[in-house]
Amino acid sequence: MGWFGRKSELYDWQRGPQHWRYTTDDRPQVYLQQTYAPVAGMKRGSISESNEPNKNTLDVTVPVDLAFLDLFRGRTPTERLLLTVYERKRDNSVVRRWIGEIGNVTWSDSKVVLRHFPPSASQTTNGLKECWQKNCPHMVYSAGMGLCNAAQETMRVNATVSSVSGSVVQSSAWATKPDGWFDGGWVQWGEGTAIERRFVTQHTGDTLTLMTPALLPVGTVLATLPGCDGTIDTCINKFGNWLNYGGFPWWPTKNPMGNEAIY
């Protein structure tokens, strides 16, 4: 592309080590030894900046048959999908125009609109993250000083799927645990180099009800992690992890000074 060439844009969607690369040009483009495939009809909305990050969204419209959209057909990926937009100028130089992640997907008969949010939209302010409370505030299996540190390898149950119907999945391996054992936990499996997860809302016998459907073929092996309700009894009896318990189960419920102010 020379001085009299057209500008083109390069779109790089990324999930972990996986990439899907496309261009608005009518021929393939190569940048940093990576090829971007042409997509007819792909376009984006305007790029804006304001003091309200949630308004700085970027809509990208793509054909409904784009291979990248297979990630969203009948399900929602659990890992973040990042987008980097580059612009190739007429002098062949390339600059990065925008970066963010997919927030939602809107389908129609012939096209799909991918709405992206900038990194600032997911940032939170600094502040106290823990309170004085009876139940444990730690995320189960979180690792590090002052966190849960329950061992996933010890608690994991590998289960071979015998039946799938929407959000309901069955495996005989789950029947070896009492009802409710996996409530609040999740199942996970590999898809290429990515890891997909679905959270468990109910466990009864050999059946799990998932929060969202999973397109799983029979025979898939799922790593199943039990959940935690944050109580000291569960921490002791289920996980044997009471030394890392982050709550204060013996916190008094009655004010020892009475209901009257002292002054």
Rank of each mutant, 00 (worst) to 15 (best):
S172Y: 03
D179M: 05
A173F: 05
L128S: 10
V105F: 03
A150T: 13
P178L: 10
E153W: 04
G190E: 09
A121I: 08
R97T: 15
Y141I: 06
R97H: 02
W132Q: 10
A150R: 03
C136S: 12
S122V: 08
R96M: 09
L81M: 07
T124S: 13
W132K: 10
P137T: 14
G180Y: 04
L83P: 00
W186Y: 11
K134F: 03
G190I: 02
S122E: 10
D183Y: 00
G100C: 03
V113S: 03
N104C: 05
R80S: 07
N158Y: 11
F182L: 09
V105H: 06
R97I: 13
S165E: 14
P178D: 13
S93K: 12
V157H: 02
Q123F: 03
H116G: 02
P178S: 15
R115Q: 10
T106V: 11
P119C: 01
V94T: 11
S120N: 06
V187Y: 00
V169H: 07
D179T: 10
Q170K: 14
L81W: 00
A175E: 12
H116Q: 09
E101K: 11
N104Y: 12
V140N: 05
T84L: 01
C148K: 06
A175Q: 12
G184I: 02
D179Y: 04
E153H: 09
G185Q: 01
S162F: 02
S171H: 06
G100K: 04
P137G: 13
P178F: 08
G166I: 14
V112Q: 05
